[in-house]
Design a protein around this nucleic acid. Structure first.
Lengths: 137, 137
DNA sequence: GTCGATAGTGACACTCGTTGTCGATCTGTG
DNA sequence: CACAGATCGACAACGAGTGTCACTATCGAC
């Protein structure tokens, strides 16, 4: 349960806009684009600029507070995630997201990279599929 | 006349431009963006339009003849690859690319997806690192 | 070989996500 | 409270990629 904490991480100051974005991210559980977040905030009456949303999301991502997912078009989506290393299982229809772990995958990636003389290894693993609910229809 | 194979896959006709693009892809072993391919062809004297390069690469990708990799910015890179399912180990400095296989990863992805009720599963796995040569410097 | 239908080409305008600019505004501090 | 500097946001700019459409090259038919 998230009681209260400092929702500002971007730079340092706590502003109305940053609080609003952080709050919305806490509510949402699936990946949302910057534009969607901007729209939702405006719908709620929070006057906020698109530029600010972009900058704040990027800062949060840089700080590791939220995860970024780049869709096929290169459009970025954001989501508040748990802190430990994990990957995502995303429904390609409704966007439902499940965090998954795979120690075996981590080891495999490191091993393969080492075999080819690569160091400072990072990796991206995303699984796309159709969730049970979306298949029903 | 028709001593060589048919390098055209996009639509059906074999044109000078398509032959040039296919030929260049055969030479290169690392991922290149559409713009880089366009520049290189022009440098060689092949008069070719950027639009045509984009369309041809996309058609080749749709036909499964080449692989697409989307960098952080969403910029797409293309590369002629082997036909069987594989993933890439890419040097983040020089772009050197190695094809790798990981049956364990495939199974893991399918299993995890099934556990959460997901079907029609696809996945992306890319490993980024610094190759031996780039570390030396 | 040459004709003609038509797939293909490419200069250009345009979309769209994202970033840069810069004066106005707000925050935390002294 | 006053102030320096962080932050905001309207707008312009950017860059990858796509749509348009008149012109051109390919290739099957003859």
């Amino acid at each position: 349960m998230t009681g209260s904490r400092a929702p500002s991480v971007p730079g340092r100051r706590a502003t109305r806009q940053r609080t609003a974005i952080a709050g919305l991210l806490d509510e949402l559980s699936d990946f949302r684009s910057a534009q969607e977040i901007h729209e939702e905030l405006r719908r709620r009456g929070d006057g906020i600029g698109l530029t600010t949303v972009y900058r704040t999301l990027q800062a949060l991502a840089d700080a590791g507070e939220i995860d970024v997912l780049r869709a096929g078009t290169g459009e970025a989506s954001y989501r508040r995630c748990s802190e430990h290393h994990h990957h995502h299982l995303v429904c390609r229809s409704c966007g439902k997201t499940v965090e998954v772990e795979g120690p075996a995958v981590e080891h495999w990636a490191d091993r393969v990279a080492a075999q080819h003389g690569f160091a400072e290894v990072s990796h991206t693993v995303e699984i796309l599929g159709l969730c049970a609910a979306c298949r029903q229809t």
